[in-house]
Structures are given as C-alpha cells and as structure tokens.
Amino acid sequence: MSLDSKTATVLKAGTLVGIAIMAAGILLSSFDISEDIMYAGVVILVCTPMAGVFVSTACLYKEGDKKWTGVAIVLIAVILLGLLITSL
C-alpha cells in the first residue's frame, strides 16, 4: 500500500468510527450513557487528522524519503508546540 492509500485508510476508518459513535450517542440521547458515547465519538473524530499525519510520517520514513519525513516531523513538532503554548 502506498502513502496515499494508507493515509486514506486511517482517515476513512477514524471518520467512520467517530461519526458512527456520535450518531449512536444522538440516538441514545434519552439514556444516561449518551454523553460518554458522544464524547468518545468526538475524541476519535478530532484525533483522526493527526493519526493521518503519524501514519504518513511512518510511510515516508519506510520509503526512505528523508526530505518529506523531515517535513512531517517538523509539522508534528510545531503542532505539539502550538498545543503547549495555547494550553498555557
């Protein structure tokens, strides 16, 4: 599988699982556990783009593509730095 197909698989799986759990949470809104279900769905969906970046990074590293692996690592570092600064 190529970089594109592996990344697409992760994005598709994360999105479908997250959305399905969210939809289940909405349908079960009269039950106490619905908030927990919806929260789990939101967490999975929101983390999916970053999961895609991690998978892309691993694929580029495996392909021996040093330049673009470096770009991906810098991106992850910048995002983590941004999260750190924003949360302070």
Partner: peptide, 25 residues
C-alpha cells in the same frame, strides 16, 4: 490538522457542547 489543535484545546477546557457538536459533525 489545523482544526485538531483548536478542538483539542476546547475539549480540555470542557467548552464542547456534545449534542450540538455531534449534530454538526
């Protein structure tokens, strides 16, 4: 990727109204 950072911060702060966010998503 850009939205991930913002959304995570809002989730940590407890600012996400779950039923609204799920309906939108």
């Amino acid at each position: 990727i850009t939205a991930f950072s913002g959304a995570i911060i809002y989730m940590i702060e407890g600012a996400v109204i779950l039923d609204v966010a799920c309906a939108v998503a």
